[in-house]
Design a protein around this nucleic acid. Structure first.
Length: 674
DNA sequence: CATGTCTTAAACAAAC
DNA sequence: AGTTTGTTTAAGACAT
């Protein structure tokens, strides 16, 4: 119980950190409040701040790129591809002012275009950026709309008052008119509020905005804060007024005009956009269901749903479709505003499509890359194998050549891409996500981690990521990397900390684990020494301890191959170690083990690793309780002595005094070595 | 669901 | 007396 929580805590900690340092970090974290202009922290403010952050980032990147570009193409007027505005970008970057929007947060289409084209942002970032842009634009339109409404309302009220005062007893008709107008405005106001609320809700659902439920109520005041009435009014006029005839163009280009609509909050009307968004990325789901609803509307008009006009910012309510159509024709006809909206929307869609295309492309590239790699994995491991050559003892065949080299464990080989994998299956797993740790293990069971380790050496050395290998694998690697294939506990510790940034923390935990593993696994053989003891690896045991699942996996083949070529390699290793250690009795003992095991291995041949062997391997190791304190674990008194090979091993090094005496003498003899 | 592996935690003991 | 090194046991998470 306690352990569990503790476990989770420790394991989560690192995971989180990883997330934070890596891509996951979307602009939602802590950010300075200074960005918020208004005093009270409202939902809108929060939104702004978030957006601001994201945009800030994007802008910075853009700026940098701009500078670079400028440097490269300094005096060139505008080679700009599309618009001549490119020159202005520098400006607009710092104070971006899009046509209809005034707040600095908005990224101009050009900027967006650039971001997209240059792919300076990750897909996720882009996603967020786009979403936020949309949200922001909506927000702004809402602001403007509301502002305008308020002002008009004010005006109306004033007028009304004046009129009332002046013509105290004037005609009712006039009064009625006025009050009717008033009512209309109030209604509109209400609508706006609704729209806004919906919008906010949507934002919340999208994760763009995180506020407590209670806060959802509209901070209308804040919306109007800091706005310049005149400008707003004008803008609003531009955007809202103007009625002409045919809205058909719009409906025909229907898909195009909706991104920034005020009505976006309302259930979606534009399936296309939704599609894009959803195809594109992760945030969607939310408005999906809604869209189908609108089919209810008799004619399935995309701008009409639930008796509400869904034209951006309209939300007028209609009892029947006819009146809606009429309204549509009258209110939302072809004019500057509409076209402008359409244009903007088109751009949005374009960008989304562009992004989608890019992402698709990228995905394709990734897939092909990984595929290719999986087919020709050999290419990578070899050059990198300087370090892992020790691995040879296991991955015999290829290693034979590097064997001659004295390993240089410490030299940081220049690995390829850090994330490249030897075992490149294209599963999400193989992208060994930085996140959670253990789950990946099943794979690595089968695989020779060594190449992977060496390939990603730099990566693991510098990144606080938990390596996807078991302690046993790592320990083995550490030991095998050592010149003498033996390490003291402390040296193992050091290897861990040296090779993995991850193991520079929580020392108590992982050290305990290391010790535990050393003791637990038969494959680690402790050889005593004056100074204490060194640990060696019994390759055979190591191999033995994880056969089952191998079936089918390429690793299996490799393993089998390995085992076949084993004898020679091992003997080579043996020779090497012998050469290094002049008369190391203890070494001899352990190596002897290996050798014997190797022989046994060869005898058993390929089937050894398969399943047939399961019978002898597993029983062999478990029932050996007694002889733990003996320096060489190879239990001489193995109950099931059936296995010929094993008994062979046993005979080779078992005699009790062999251990003790020898240890003694050896130690002294070996001190120099150590 | 049973089983095996891996990890983490922790108690203990012997050696340093 | 405190630390290191080893050994064990227990238990939870995962994968098969």
């Amino acid at each position: 119980m306690m352990q569990e929580s503790g476990t989770e805590a420790t394991s989560n900690g690192p995971a989180n950190q990883n997330g934070g340092t890596s891509l996951e970090s979307v602009p939602r974290e802590g950010r300075p409040k200074s960005a918020t202009p208004s005093v009270e922290v409202t939902a809108v403010d929060l939104l702004h701040v978030q957006q601001h952050q994201a945009l800030q980032m994007a802008r910075q990147i853009l700026l940098q790129q701009q500078q670079q570009q400028q440097q490269s193409q300094q005096m060139q007027p505008n080679t700009g591809r599309k618009s001549p505005k490119i020159n202005d970008k520098q400006q607009s970057l710092q104070v971006p002012v899009s046509v209809a929007m005034m707040t600095p947060q908005v990224i101009t289409p050009q900027q967006m275009q650039q971001i997209l084209q240059q792919q300076v942002l990750s897909p996720q970032q882009l996603q967020v950026l786009l979403q936020q842009q949309q949200a922001l634009m909506l927000q702004q339109q809402l602001q403007e709309f509301y502002k305008k409404q308020q002002e008009q309302l004010h005006l109306q009220l004033l007028q009304q008052q004046q009129q009332q005062q002046q013509h105290a007893g004037s005609k009712q008709s006039k009064e009625q008119q006025v009050s009717a107008q008033q009512l209309a405005f109030q209604q509109q106001l209400l609508q706006v509020q609704q729209v806004q609320q919906q919008h906010l809700l949507n934002l919340q659902r999208q994760g763009l905005l995180t506020i407590q439920p209670g806060q959802t109520s509209l901070p209308l005041h804040s919306l109007t804060q800091g706005m310049i009435p005149a400008e707003l009014q004008q803008l609003w006029k531009e955007v809202t007024n103007a009625h002409v005839k045919e809205e058909h163009n719009n409906s025909s280009s229907n898909n195009g005009h909706r991104g920034l609509d005020l009505s976006s909050p309302a259930p979606p009307k534009n399936p296309l956009l939704n599609q894009h968004v959803s195809t594109n990325g992760q945030y969607m789901s939310h408005k999906r269901e809604g869209s189908t609803l609108e089919d209810h509307s008799p004619h399935g008009h995309p701008l009409y749903g639930h008796g509400v006009c869904k034209w951006p910012g309209c939300e007028a309510v209609f009892d029947d479709f006819q009146s809606f159509l009429k309204h549509l024709n009258n209110e939302h006809a072809l004019d500057d505003r509409s076209t402008a909206q359409c244009r903007v929307q088109m751009q949005v869609v374009q960008q989304l499509e562009l992004q989608l295309a890019k992402d698709k492309e990228r995905l394709q590239a990734m897939m092909t890359h990984l595929h290719v790699k999986s087919t020709e994995p050999k290419a990578t491991p070899q050059p990198l194998n300087l370090v892992s050559n020790v691995t040879l003892s296991k991955t015999a065949p290829e290693a034979s050549s590097p064997l001659s080299l004295p390993q240089t464990p410490t030299t940081p080989t220049a690995p390829l891409t850090p994330l490249s994998q030897t075992h490149s299956v294209i599963t999400a797993n193989s992208l060994h996500s930085v996140g959670p740790m253990r789950r990946r293990y099943s794979d690595k069971y089968n695989m020779p981690i060594s190449p992977d380790i060496s390939q990603n050496k730099d990566f693991y050395m510098n990144t606080d990521v938990r390596p996807p290998f078991t302690y046993a694998s790592l320990i083995r690697q550490a030991i095998l990397e050592s010149p003498e294939k033996q390490l003291t506990l402390n040296e193992i510790y050091n290897w861990f900390t040296r090779m993995f940034a991850y193991f520079r923390r929580n020392a108590a935990t992982w050290k305990n684990a290391v010790r535990h593993n050393l003791s637990l696994h038969k494959c680690f053989v402790r050889v005593e020494n004056v100074k204490g003891a060194v640990w060696t690896v019994d390759e055979i045991e190591f191999q033995k301890r994880r056969p089952q699942k191998i079936s089918g996996s390429p690793a299996l083949v490799k393993n089998i191959q390995t085992s076949l070529g084993y004898g020679s390699t091992l003997s080579a290793a043996f020779q090497a170690s012998m050469a290094e250690n002049t008369t190391p009795l203890y070494t001899t003992a352990s190596t002897l083990n290996s050798l014997a095991n190797a022989i046994r291995e060869e005898m058993n041949g390929a089937m050894d690793h398969g399943n047939s062997n399961g019978s002898d391997s597993s029983p062999g190791r478990s029932p050996l309780p007694a002889m733990h304190h003996i320096s060489v674990k190879e239990e001489p008194l193995d109950p099931d002595d059936h296995e010929g090979p094993l008994s062979l091993v046993t005979t080779a090094n078992h005699s009790p005094d062999f251990d003790h005496h020898r240890d003694y003498d050896d130690d002294q003899g070996h001190d120099d070595m150590l």
